[in-house]
Design a binder for these strands. Structure first.
Lengths: 133, 133
DNA sequence: GGTGAAGATTACCTTGAGGTAAGTGCATGC
DNA sequence: GCATGCACTTACCTCAAGGTAATCTTCACC
């Protein structure tokens, strides 16, 4: 990142090009996952170490089994997570971040830092805005 | 960003704390905007310079008027965008990024770079995955 | 031989984000 | 005097994301 505005322009350009019929743009594509209610939470949970299905379910209790399966499947499809089946007595399945998955943690971490650093100002802005209304 | 895994742990910790009744976590909160279909596109469009309502509508033709108004209103509420009314003959309204809005461009830019750099590997992974199915 | 855990899949249902379309008030241009 | 542009607002409708809950298979334990 040298120049934020420059990056913005490249982004807009790619976006427009994509809208022009080439299919969905890569940024939009990735953003859908980022914005997804569970994807990033699972990626970050797996960033702490490999986990089994029910282990994930215990660490993220408010996800339904259906969404856990589905989100894991999507992440696997995108090559961010790999699935390893061990045929132990009750077959156990382990999920891991792939190198690609690990590489997402870095840019995503910047966003987390921004979020944590900006939340007070955002909340203050909301309060002001709502006070006027 | 010194250590990605460390950041991940802080994230998980905050998330869990938030789930524990403090309200929605700041990261989730910010992510909702990031993941929003239009918010980031508008922020990036405004990163190229201040724009008026219909100017934005022309640059982002596939957004509906309703969503443009609504998204702009939300961004304004969060203090990312400011609204300036000039009472010219047909009243014109200009939208600008606030300093807070500008600061988002940096971490977001990292994500854009990651997206553009990773899309080929993601698409390859999807192809492989779908081939097996 | 009944119970429980592991790792799912499936059917059904609700909610809300976002699209479409039309209307509003005002002013300039044709 | 009709149309057009600006900046919205409102009503209505649709579709898909995601929740709930039931079900499945296999094995170990008591």
């Amino acid at each position: 990142m040298q120049n934020a505005v420059e990056t913005a322009e490249i982004y807009i350009e790619r976006w427009s090009a994509a809208a022009g019929e080439t299919g969905p743009c890569p940024v939009r594509d990735v953003l859908d996952k980022i914005g997804d209610k569970w994807s990033m939470l699972l990626v970050m949970t797996l960033a702490c170490g490999d986990k089994r299905f029910n282990e994930l379910h215990r660490e993220v209790p408010d996800i339904s089994q259906k969404m856990l399966t589905q989100t894991l499947r999507d992440l696997q499809r995108d090559g961010l997570v790999s699935r390893h089946v061990f045929d132990t007595k009750p077959p156990s399945v382990e999920y891991r971040l792939t190198p690609l998955g690990h590489s997402l943690i870095v840019p995503f971490g910047h966003l987390i830092e921004w979020a944590n650093g900006s939340i007070r100002r955002i909340e203050a802005a909301r309060k002001d805005f709502d006070a006027v209304r």
